[in-house]
Write a protein that binds this DNA or RNA. Structure first.
Lengths: 211, 211
DNA sequence: CGCGTCATTGATGTGCATCAAGTGGTGTGG
DNA sequence: CCACACCACTTGATGCACATCAATGACGCG
């Protein structure tokens, strides 16, 4: 895989990796740091479309018409590797299965977004927040972090924008979960106290495929 | 492209093309007929994740872990072509750009789902229905159908499931749009009377990228 | 016709948004 | 070191959009 890495790039907190409308030049593998993607609505407000962490891929949206359709912003100081699709294609005859790997990454993205659609379409707000938290700790744990402690890299506003609810509602739900003893919340520091109860509170969706 | 078509298959109305959990064998290009994709929630209810029409591709969700994660059901008698990804890969050295074409299709799917997420996360229900209608006629028009007349292939229930609202709300919004003179609704026959007003009623989202 | 499915319409309830005020942590300048 | 401002966040009061519950209507089919 190192063969297709063209450039490394460091970003400072709040620096933008690419903007909506930028020419697509290739994908980005996150080596360190935490990102958000968002799109700008007409009225100037932004809607967060996803959060990405080390080990994940950014930029798949730009392949379609060679332009990006969202903004990608680092929420922490971060480092990424540029991957050129051309290089991947070039190496394909040699590295059988690499092409297939790209398909898998894209398919996973499609499936994941279907899960978010499901969540937005049919969960109540408390279920969305718990699903969000559980998804976050699972992905972090997959990369070696704690499965009970999270330090959120995003504001309540960004969480709300992603989950389709207002900042006040996010806040109220955090306090409610705290009152029920499921989590301990202190600023952006979240301690998962009762993962079983959390999963139950996601309700009929606890069966959502883990990824 | 004909080279990668392995099999044609005819389906009757309400017949299932693939189920959740089925082994992934390849993609399907819709030649005729109208499909829905859905996933089953724990309690047995279903959530519709998309509608597909001739010229579109089904099955991208199955690439990730070689199993499908949703059901695809024909809403009309339909015909599809099976496309084997292996065959595509096999032909890749010969047909340069075909691989890239697959990437584009997958990227478009990712971008489209981001739009649905946006819609579910930040539109009110009247905006969702109008956005849904406009999206439908645009896609149909792209395939040679009228841009003012639609015959819905799905029930109100399925529309509601897709848009994240209840059947009664869907119904009320259709009558409201009719009262405002934007559309004429007769059962599943929809006549777009005032596309300009419809687009305005989508509000700040009229700028959503057309695809 | 009588039944089943799908859709419409009305009455009522509730979850979340909205509006508004207050808290606490952090940084800055006097 | 404190006063002040600023920001992210919390908390409370009120309103509205949509869900829920219930009844009725329209169409197709045996």
């Amino acid at each position: 895989m190192d063969e297709v890495v063209t450039v490394r790039r460091k970003l400072m907190r709040y620096e933008t990796l690419f903007h909506t409308g930028d020419d697509f030049t290739g994908l980005y593998a996150i080596r360190s740091g935490f990102f958000k993607t968002s799109t700008c609505l007409e009225n100037g407000r932004e809607q967060v479309t996803g959060f990405q962490m080390p080990g994940e891929i950014l930029g798949l949206d730009g392949i379609f018409d060679a332009h990006h359709t969202c903004n990608a912003v680092a929420l922490q100081d971060a480092e990424v590797c540029s991957l050129s699709l051309d290089r991947i294609a070039e190496f394909f005859p040699l590295v059988t299965g690499l092409q297939h790997h790209v398909h898998k990454i894209m398919s996973r993205e499609i499936v994941r977004e279907q899960d978010v659609m499901l969540m937005l379409g049919s969960m109540r707000s408390e279920e969305r927040v718990t699903a969000f938290l559980l998804n976050l700790v699972r992905r972090l744990h997959a990369h070696g972090f704690s499965r009970t402690e999270v330090i959120l890299q995003m504001t309540r506003e960004e969480i709300g924008s992603y989950l389709g609810m207002k900042i006040e509602t996010v806040s109220r739900i955090f306090t409610r979960l705290m009152e029920q003893g499921m989590v301990a919340v202190n600023q952006r520091h979240i301690h998962i106290l009762d993962p079983v109860a959390l999963r139950q509170s996601v309700g009929q969706f606890e069966g959502l495929r883990a990824r």
